[in-house]
């Protein structure tokens, strides 16, 4: 089966390409990135600020159920062309990953389908590699924690 989401991360480079085809008109795909209420729903984070225009900026924040902030990120929008392109920076607070440049190309494949090409550029090869491995490490951690939970419950 053809994978819907494709990642291209060549060794020794500080960039990642992500492509994905959507069963959505390109206008709706673009809207998912430019309307705060919609972005909140699919990203699962609170949007404190989102100025969807050239030279606008944005701020995201996620809290756990006790009200502690667990994720905070912000960036500025360098370019925004309706239904076609967004160029923005993205930086997470309190993590040593620096700032990344994100180039989003929105493409209509048919009136009902579209494609997103994401090009992410990081400060260094080391940072990129670390971010690539993060979900892998989290997967292992998660599995480990689950195991701990099960063992604790047995006691």
């Amino acid at each position: 089966m053809e994978l819907k989401t494709k990642i291209n991360a060549e060794d020794g480079k500080q960039e990642i390409f992500i492509t994905r085809e959507f069963d959505l008109p390109v206008e709706l795909l673009f809207k998912a990135y430019t309307e705060a209420g919609l972005l909140e729903q699919w990203m699962g984070t609170k949007v404190l600020k989102l100025e969807s225009r050239k030279h606008g900026s944005y701020e995201l924040e996620t809290s756990d159920n006790k009200g502690n902030v667990v994720f905070k990120a912000n960036g500025t929008i360098h370019e925004l062309i309706q239904d076609k392109k967004i160029i923005r920076t993205f930086e997470m607070d309190n993590v040593p990953f620096g700032v990344q440049l994100e180039i989003y190309d929105f493409e209509a494949l048919s009136p009902e389908t579209s494609k997103l090409n994401m090009h992410m550029i990081y400060e260094s090869i080391a940072v990129r590699d670390q971010l690539l491995k993060l979900p892998f490490a989290q997967g292992l951690n998660y599995a480990h924690n689950r195991l701990q939970d099960v063992l604790t419950n047995l006691k």
């Binding site: 990642i7 994905r20 809207k31």
Partner: peptide, 25 residues
Amino acid sequence: DFIEPFRQMWDERFNKLESVMKDYQ
């Protein structure tokens, strides 16, 4: 292949985007 969990993370995120936008549509 350590990239696979990264790909899956994005795939899940995009699946969510697709379902949110279908509801909206």
